[in-house]
């Protein structure tokens, strides 16, 4: 039972996982790094070394800046709306009212719906000729003519954001609700006895318990929003006129539509770098919040 044997045994038990992880993540990532310095095509030529050419060309090209902006805009808006809506829903579901149990159960439905089904559903709702949104808005008189919500650059991104928020705010709500239920009843009771107003009760009693879990939700949702691919691919494929093209879509087009494996790899690594920087920055903040809450 010596320490070294325990450590060795632990490594042996981890070994299968680590081997698989190296095979399906570690090695491909290393290969992506290597590819990013070549002009390799997806099929055929293995390419030759081109140094940082791919990076320089991509970053100076105009698609990159615009796509980065679109991605950031999408991420910031969906995360903000989801956090806001999620916390509001959680505060509501933490109150006493008839049907609360049922409503809490319903909350899991959008989260459980497969992403692609969600995207398909909203695509049908936004349909320019037969969609429910057009029908509803014309029937109550807000809209005169049917519109192509996903077909116009002005509305496509907003339409996507609505669809994404609808699916993902329940996750934030579930995390926030669990945190709210973890607030000790004694502390709440004490705040009533001390005569705290509803606002100061939220600010000084509830919020400290919410802060940590919400930060975790924020980090997870930001990373996911930055990586977003599925919902956009199914609803718009990045169009119209590239108005909904996010970084992952751009990488897909570069590497698989145009079969430029080398420059696709460079682009993918830039995205990875951005997400890593975001995650590390957030991680620092999370530690701070967790530290001050404790």
């Amino acid at each position: 039972m010596s320490g070294t044997w325990l450590t060795t045994r632990a490594w042996l038990l981890m070994l299968p996982l680590l081997i698989v992880m190296v095979a399906v993540i570690g090695w491909p990532l290393a290969d992506t790094v290597q590819l990013s310095f070549t002009d390799a095509k997806l099929v055929g030529t293995s390419g030759s070394y081109v140094g940082f050419d791919n990076y320089v060309r991509l970053v100076s090209g105009n698609a990159f800046g615009r796509t980065l902006f679109t991605t950031t805009f999408f991420a910031v808006v969906v995360v903000t709306v989801e956090m806001l809506f999620g916390v509001l829903a959680a505060l509501l579901l933490n109150q006493r009212f008839h049907g609360r149990t049922l409503l809490r159960a319903l909350l899991i439905l959008p989260w459980a719906l497969p992403t692609v089904v969600n995207a398909t559903l909203w695509r049908l709702i936004y349909n320019p000729e037969y969609g429910a949104l057009n029908a509803a808005l014309t029937q109550i008189g807000i809209l005169d003519n049917y519109r192509s919500w996903l077909g116009e650059p002005g509305t496509a991104l907003t339409a996507l954001i609505v669809a994404d928020c609808w699916k993902n705010f329940p996750l934030v709500a579930m995390i926030a609700l669990a945190a709210l239920q973890a607030v000790p009843r004694d502390v709440i009771a004490a705040s009533y006895v001390d005569g705290a107003s509803a606002f100061s009760r939220f600010r000084f009693v509830t919020l400290p318990y919410l802060a940590g879990p919400l930060m975790v939700a924020l980090v997870l949702r930001t990373i996911e929003a930055f990586k977003v691919f599925d919902i956009i691919w199914v609803m718009t494929r990045g169009g119209p006129a590239n108005s909904t093209r996010t970084m992952s879509i751009l990488v897909y087009q570069e590497a698989f539509s145009f079969q430029r494996a080398g420059s696709g790899a460079s682009l993918a690594l830039i995205v990875t770098l951005i997400i890593t920087v975001l995650a590390v920055a957030y991680g620092t903040v999370v530690k701070k919040v967790a530290g001050s809450a404790a």
């Binding site: 399906v24 993540i25 992506t32 992952s248 590497a255 696709g264 997400i275």
Partner: peptide, 11 residues
């Protein structure tokens, strides 16, 4: 944190 696109080409 890795976007799947970072692994897709080698895979």
């Amino acid at each position: 944190m890795l976007p799947p696109v970072a692994l897709a080409v080698p895979l």
